[in-house]
């Protein structure tokens, strides 16, 4: 009914609040350009600071360094065991992302494609708890992990990812539900079992939303500060985010080194975003993931 009607309607066109569009467009573009300079400036400043020499950093306030101190990156990297931190971060991030993908998509498939008793009830329970602030569960979860003896290991950072969270499950379920049930029925007639349908039909058809979730999980795990801070006790286990903390020494921050290290730490997320931004922005617009 109305959804079909709506689909045939031409969308999107607030294009014109105003009559003389071309002037408005130029003005809008100029304003947006100004805005994007404001948004990008801190990052440009970061890069420029990272390239200034020790002597220059507090004196030269222009954006372009006089001498390009590329070795800041090397110095920063070597000022703490960042190699180890990188290894740890990659380990946590990769396992966490895989876990979240597996757990969430399995659950979403169950909710979207299989009819069973209690499905609506469980789903309602999950949705109902999404409003509860994270701090409510943080304390008991910490106590739970500490009673299990998991504090000081990577387990608290990885295991929960495998057990699926309400939010991603909800998003994936929406996406799976948009795939017609007739695919499932046809595949069943061909003799495929549920697992085969899931891996060969449903997953490949849901690449955009899966990509979005990968990126967001990756970003969340890579940038996570509080999880590692609470649960990792020895310096050998530290992640990059905890490593960055070491620049806040007692003698003040060495900004050029800190910026260099920050850029290295931020690089994977930026690159990932640059490659996948189309998917991410679409996914964002559809599902409303808060980044």
């Amino acid at each position: 009914m109305s959804s079909i009607e709506a689909a045939s309607r031409k969308k999107g066109g607030s294009a014109s609040h105003f009559r003389n569009l071309s002037i408005i467009r130029v003005v809008a573009s100029l304003l947006l350009l100004l805005g994007s300079v404001v948004v990008l400036f801190p990052l440009a400043w970061m890069l420029s600071t990272a390239l200034k020499s020790d002597a220059e950093v507090m004196v030269n306030s222009s954006l372009i360094p006089k001498a390009w101190a590329w070795d800041n990156f090397v110095k920063a990297w070597n000022s703490a065991p960042f190699g180890t931190y990188l290894k740890n971060t990659v380990f946590i991030t990769v396992l966490g992302t895989i876990g979240s993908l597996v757990g969430n998509s399995l659950a979403a498939y169950g909710f979207a494609k299989i009819k069973f008793r209690g499905r609506e009830l469980v789903f309602l329970c999950a949705l109902g708890t999404m409003m509860i602030p994270g701090m409510v569960t943080l304390v008991p979860t910490y106590v739970l992990f500490s009673n299990l003896g998991w504090v000081g290991t990577y387990l608290p950072l990885i295991v929960p990812a495998f057990t699926a969270g309400a939010y991603y499950t909800f998003l994936l379920r929406q996406s799976f539900m948009s795939i017609p049930m007739s695919y499932n029925e046809a595949a069943k007639l061909e003799g495929a079992n549920e697992m085969q349908i899931f891996t060969r039909i449903i997953l490949p058809l849901s690449k955009p939303i899966l990509t979005t979730i990968v990126v967001f999980e990756f970003k969340a795990k890579w940038n996570d500060y509080f999880g590692p801070m609470l649960y990792l006790t020895s310096e050998k286990q530290y992640t990059l985010q905890l490593g960055l903390r070491t620049f806040r020494g007692t003698a003040g921050v060495e900004w050029q080194k800190f910026m260099a290290a920050s850029l290295i730490v931020m690089a994977p997320t930026i690159i990932m975003y640059a490659i996948m931004q189309k998917y991410i922005l679409e996914g964002m617009a559809q599902g409303g993931i808060k980044g």
Partner: peptide
């Protein structure tokens, strides 16, 4: 029923 609960079991346990 069984299949459904098997698929959502990671979710149920996590929940």
């Amino acid at each position: 029923n069984l299949k459904g609960w098997a698929f959502i079991s990671p979710f149920v346990i996590g929940f």
